[in-house]
């Protein structure tokens, strides 16, 4: 839901008309997935619009501001590869998310392809695009570690997810794309102590509060109204 919101901010600002379509399309897929997930837990709008910042459990990665197009693509690469690998495993598993994952994995495969194709183009495009792609990948690297903290409810063997294996598959896949683009992933750890798992505990980065203030404002201004 949070990443969908961020991608929605691109509407009317994309570098080319085809990307208006593509980014909105990805945003819509993600919003659709979020609505299914939220509805499994409760009322989707109550959960989206009436929780405060500390109650959100999203990864810090997805709440990061869009930055330039390369920054957005770096965020998308890190997340889409992760989501694709995760959903593949969930779809093959036996947990309550199997159905959702089986449907979503097809959408996410497309998101992953879109991000990978752009990483190749920006990395292996012009000097400027290479620099920008590199900065995007570098800037967001520190938020990737928390993706592999086992998610509550998905930490049992029947969920189909082996988090350690997921981490190494992800690293291999992302490294492959980035190297094919003529770039390298940043050296060093994937996350500092603070960022690791922070989002899952409701600890967010500062831009997130402003994002949900905007998102929730209208809904909260009319308590009890239906739309």
């Amino acid at each position: 839901m949070v990443l969908s919101h961020r991608l929605g901010e691109w509407a009317g600002h994309a570098p080319v008309l085809e990307e208006e379509v593509a980014l909105a399309n990805i945003a819509l897929d993600l919003l659709g997935q979020a609505r299914v997930l939220l509805s499994l837990v409760g009322d989707e709008d109550e959960l989206a619009y009436l929780r405060e910042e500390r109650a959100f459990r999203n990864l810090q990665l997805v709440e990061q501001p869009n930055g330039d197009f390369a920054h957005t693509i770096a965020r998308q690469l890190y997340f889409s590869v992760y989501q694709h690998l995760l959903y593949e495993r969930l779809a093959a598993g036996d947990g309550e998310l199997t159905g959702l994952a089986a449907k979503a994995v097809k959408e996410v495969a497309y998101h992953r392809d879109h991000a990978e194709q752009w990483v190749l183009r920006l990395g292996d495009g012009t000097e400027e695009s290479r620099d920008r792609m590199r900065s995007g990948l570098d800037a967001l690297w520190r938020f990737t570690g928390e993706m592999f903290q086992p998610v509550e409810g998905l930490d049992s063997p029947e969920s189909g997810v082996d988090w350690g294996a997921l981490r190494s598959s992800w690293l291999a896949a992302v490294t492959d794309v980035v190297e094919r683009a003529g770039l390298n992933l940043p050296a060093g750890p994937q996350s500092g102590g603070w960022a690791a798992g922070a989002g899952r505990q409701g600890l967010h980065t500062e831009p997130f509060g402003r994002m949900i203030a905007e998102m929730q404002h209208l809904h909260r201004s009319h308590p009890g109204a239906s739309w």
């Binding site: 839901m1 919101h5 929605g8 901010e9 509407a11 009317g12 208006e20 909105a24 945003a27 819509l28 919003l31 659709g32 979020a34 609505r35 939220l38 989707e44 709008d45 989206a48 619009y49 905007e214 998102m215 404002h217 209208l218 809904h219 009319h222 109204a225 239906s226 739309w227």
Partner: peptide, 16 residues
């Protein structure tokens, strides 16, 4: 970014 429900937000995104 300010649509008041997730359903309306999805409709608006699809429209744009």
């Amino acid at each position: 970014t300010r649509a008041p429900s997730l359903r309306r937000k999805a409709i608006l995104m699809a429209k744009v």
